[in-house]
Computed example of a mutant assay.
Amino acid sequence: MSSSVQAQTKVQIPYESPTVASLLSRPEGGTYRVTYEITTQTLYVEGHQERLEWLLVDDNSTLTLQWSQRSAPPLPALLAAIEGAFAFHPGAVALRLQLPTGLHANLCATGIAVKGPHGDLWAYAELFWQLPTLWLNSPAMRPYPRQPILANGKRHPRRPPRPSGTVYQRHIPWLDATLSFRVLDLELDLERFNRWMNDPVVAHFWEEQGDLQQHRERLESTLQNPSVVPLIGCIDGEPFGYFETYWAKEDRIGAYYDAGDFDRGWHVLIGEAAFRGRPYVAAWMPSISHYLFLDDCRTQRLVIEPRVDNAKMLHNLARCGYAHVKAFDFPHKRAMLGMQLREHFFNERSWIPLPPHPGSAPRPDPRFTL
């Protein structure tokens, strides 16, 4: 990364314990600012004209979120507080919750919390990060009903209609910025897509240089394919890259491994040079995986097929939890099959990449487990 780009990047490493850390959380469509004062172990949740105060106590064996008032906190604010607690302690596997007992049954029924063997209440990072209401804009009607269909000689489940607008948002602490994915808009994004595809760095791997009309036809074809959802990645609303997500069973990759009905895959290009750095890779690569796992709870595997000579991509995939399964030959390239398992992603907390990526926590963490 050039020095000019480094100067633009506000890298904040949560586990290095700054005096004050903050996060934007968006549970159930709301927006909350979560602030943690390290010295007093006080956590504040601000939003909807309210400012709620919690204690977030770390005694080196147990991380505890304490609510001291008799009345129960609003559920969205509680979700924001839990997200903040895990963000400010990224190595934590579990978080003990001290809350009014009237909340316990609902929290356990929805997977937000789990009862411990002694009746105490715990939130697990592995469960919590699978709750779509914190990061997806429209998590209703999930999963989509299942109906097998036959299309183009392939039998697979009927896919839901393509969404529109912003589908995923996540605040990235080390950038102090919001990463989002929105569905590609042909008229809004065509010129940008054309410029990106003709960038020499992108063209080296994608080999899809062309004029505006060629790329219009290419995107029109993509948008007519019900198994593909093309996305634009943004940082604080500024587009930086193109992500082409697809259902693997209907894709060409399905012929090269035993594709499951709900396996997903993705392609990526980073079109803006200022966003081609380690802090950004550490933000978008885990986030696209997170989005695809949240989009359908039946998705157990993600796949990707970069060129075998794309050493940087293969290195970053490994840092973000992808196994290099095998090299294989497409008609147009020799590729590496990369695979991410749902269990591995959430159990290993792969939304934070392994060191030396920004934001990564020391591992393993011997913190409490039931």
Rank of each mutant, 00 (worst) to 15 (best):
G254A: 06
P279L: 01
E208N: 13
V114Q: 15
I172M: 09
P27T: 03
W206I: 09
F88Y: 08
R298G: 04
P160D: 08
E238N: 08
T369M: 06
G265D: 05
A274K: 13
I38H: 08
A151M: 12
H290W: 11
R276E: 02
V167E: 07
A81G: 13
H89Q: 13
A248I: 10
P353K: 06
F240D: 00
P139A: 09
D176F: 02
P143N: 07
L341G: 09
A87H: 01
C320L: 15
A77T: 01
I172S: 07
R146M: 09
L24D: 11
T299Q: 03
L186T: 09
S25V: 15
R155N: 11
Q300F: 02
A87M: 04
H267K: 06
V34A: 10
R155S: 14
F181G: 06
S180E: 15
A77W: 03
Y291N: 07
H204P: 00
H332T: 15
P239E: 12
D329Y: 11
K326C: 12
M141L: 11
T110N: 04
E208A: 15
V325M: 03
Y322C: 11
F346G: 01
L75V: 15
N152Y: 08
G119R: 14
Q8K: 11
F345S: 04
M197G: 00
P364T: 02
Q6I: 08
G116M: 03
I288G: 13
G29D: 10
I270E: 03
K333A: 09
P355C: 07
V325E: 11
P148Y: 03
R342V: 07
R170L: 08
V57D: 11
G277M: 02
P160C: 07
I253H: 12
A94K: 09
H104W: 04
A113L: 01
H290C: 04
P286I: 07
V93K: 01
F330T: 04
L269R: 01
G111M: 05
W174D: 15
M336D: 12
F240S: 03
Y36N: 01
P226Q: 02
S221Y: 00
G210S: 10
E220A: 14
T166A: 04
D263A: 04
E343M: 00
T31I: 08
R33S: 10
P27W: 05
P157N: 12
T19G: 09
Y257R: 04
S289C: 14
N137I: 01
